[in-house]
Simulated assay, not measured.
Amino acid sequence: MYMSFQKGFYIPKVEELIDNAFKKARDEASKVQERDFNRRIIEKEKTRVKIASEEITGTLKNIANKFPNISELNPLYKSLLANSLDIIQLKKALSHLMSSSRTCDELKTQFLAAMFRVQNKNGISKYRNEFYGRLVSVVKRCKASFEIIKNAMKNMAEIPKIKNLPTILLIGCPNTGKSTFLKAVTSANVEIQSYPFTTKRLQVGMLTEKFLEFQLLDSPGLLDRPEEKQNNIEKQTTLALKTIADSLIFIIGANENINNQINILKRFKKEIKYKPFFIVINKIDLVDMGELKEIESALKNYLPQKTTLFKLSLNKAKEQELKEIKDEIYNLNKSWYTKKGKENIKSVF
């Protein structure tokens, strides 16, 4: 299930929900038409109980029902949410809203039945005041659940819109130029800074090449350390690699420690075994020819012989250099559009 969490839904404050419900109840009660004064008061109070309860019950149910069903989400979305949220706590909050809505409905039934037996305006107003007090108490107990759900919506809004398209994951150490690559190849509007760890979440860029559409994902930089020691930012890259990446582009920083970068390649050997990929050595203007040859030699000692390798400085890339990279993206991923495309990908190791 591919979807976007960019457009959420409004979750009011508890006090706002109560005020709105009581206002609507008061407005609806003012429309009651009864010739007998005493009877008119009784019907107005019943209307206020009915409308206030229905407004609050409806809002609580609406929030709980509109929230995406986590069990039906795409594996990446589910993993990203679990990475940033306490899923059990969130489920309890949603369940609490549903049970609270039922409590409000039961209170309405209980008090309307009691009010049916009352024949004077003083007695009926007493019941309505008591009902309002009970209703407010139930809603105020939802305050913590509201905050949990609001926080979840905020986290979900940061998850990019990922389409069911061939997905190319950009992977590498911090400050190697992954965001620069995404911007150069797809014209995506991404933040680029000269310091590491600028990218803190997955970012999407779209590339149309020879009438086919491809989806590139910029990912947070990885450090040379085991997966179990990764922080939540790094884990986004690992999750994308394991769940939705159809192919990979490793961005190597020529001015960064090559051994650390090769260690990252080695660490994910199992995950990328059946995924096509190529290498981009970036920032070659920051090293001399001797250093560049050492980097190439170190990579070739590890990579399969036919691995495509590009050498350039992305911030100064020529149009022809970018065209060659786009052609390689097309060639590696065009089979996705055929029925047996994914089945035909052979191991590159």
Rank of each mutant, 00 (worst) to 15 (best):
Y2V: 09
S4G: 07
G8A: 07
I11M: 07
P12V: 09
K13Q: 09
K13R: 13
E15G: 09
L17I: 07
A21C: 07
F22W: 10
R26L: 09
Q33W: 01
E45M: 06
E45P: 03
T47Q: 11
R48E: 15
V49S: 06
K50Q: 09
T57S: 13
T57V: 13
F67A: 03
P68L: 04
N69I: 08
L80E: 15
S84E: 14
L85K: 14
D86L: 02
I88T: 14
A93L: 03
L94W: 09
S95R: 15
S100N: 13
S101Y: 08
T103S: 11
C104H: 01
D105A: 14
E106H: 04
F111W: 12
A114E: 13
M115Y: 05
M115L: 13
N122D: 12
F131A: 04
K140D: 02
A144N: 04
A144P: 00
K150D: 01
K163Y: 12
P166N: 06
N175T: 04
T180G: 06
A184D: 03
S187F: 02
S187G: 02
I192K: 02
F197W: 08
K200F: 02
Q203I: 08
V204Y: 00
E209P: 00
F211S: 14
E213Q: 07
L216R: 06
D218P: 15
R225K: 15
Q230H: 09
E234I: 02
K235E: 10
Q236V: 03
L239T: 01
L248Q: 07
A254G: 12
N257H: 11
N257E: 14
N257G: 03
N259W: 01
Q261E: 10
Y274L: 06
K283Y: 09
I284R: 03
V287N: 05
S297Q: 14
K300I: 08
N301C: 08
Y302G: 00
L303D: 04
P304T: 03
Q305M: 11
K306L: 05
T307G: 09
L314M: 15
A317K: 05
A317L: 07
E319M: 09
Q320W: 03
L322T: 01
E324M: 06
E328N: 14
K334M: 08
N344L: 15
